[in-house]
């Protein structure tokens, strides 16, 4: 899971402090694994260095960092490319796929395109494995079957998420309203 891309996507709604970003990340994506402040600020420093975010003002007050960060045009392009590119089909992809779907919804993009691109990539990989299995010996068959069953599980999740996309969009919208 790319924390940098997630923070960039969250910044598309408008400039935020590091603290707000952590809170938004934890609310939408970090139920099982909330971000540490150190991760947030080290990631923001890297994004700043790479020109993907910019500091848009500092507020007076206590605390380690009161800078507000805004996404740059280069940052938007980077998020766009990340969301559009399907992940390499590997087992246990749900975390990153879920994050992409939620972030697409949060940033007003077509989340269905994320799911469709991933489905096509998974099926392509499953075709390759099926061909390898058909041409191979029993060991090949067993290895490929293991991967195929896991990929199939991912695809079932993609299908269910597709069926629930409107419901998820509504939930994300409600949660976002609760943040503000």
């Amino acid at each position: 899971m790319s924390i940098g891309h997630a923070l960039l996507a969250l910044l598309e709604a408008g400039p935020r402090h590091g603290y707000d970003l952590k809170r938004a990340y934890d609310t939408h994506l970090g139920a099982d694994r909330p971000l540490h402040y150190g991760q947030v600020y080290s990631t923001l420093s890297r994004l700043l260095r790479n020109g993907l975010v910019e500091a848009v003002g500092r507020e007076s007050g206590d605390g380690p960092d009161r800078k507000r960060y805004a996404i740059t045009d280069a940052g938007i392009t980077d998020v766009e490319a990340w969301l559009a590119a399907p992940e390499k089909p590997e087992v246990y992809l749900q975390n990153v796929l879920y994050a992409k779907v939620v972030l697409a919804l949060l940033s007003g993009r077509d989340a269905q395109r994320v799911l469709d691109a991933q489905r096509a990539e998974h099926l392509k990989h499953m075709r390759e494995l099926t061909k390898r299995k058909s041409d191979g010996d029993l060991v090949d068959q067993l290895i490929c079957d293991h991967a195929l069953f896991h990929l199939e599980a991912d695809l079932r999740w993609l299908e269910l998420t597709t069926a629930r996309i409107d419901q998820l969009a509504e939930q994300v919208r409600t949660t976002t309203e609760g943040e503000t």
Partner: peptide
């Protein structure tokens, strides 16, 4: 509706709510 069966095909067509759409993927 099984992906492992569909993987024997050269390509796939997805149908949802009675619709198909070509060339997107």
């Amino acid at each position: 509706h099984e992906a492992r069966v569909a993987a024997y095909a050269d390509r796939e067509v997805i149908v949802r709510d009675g619709r198909t759409k070509t060339g997107v993927l």
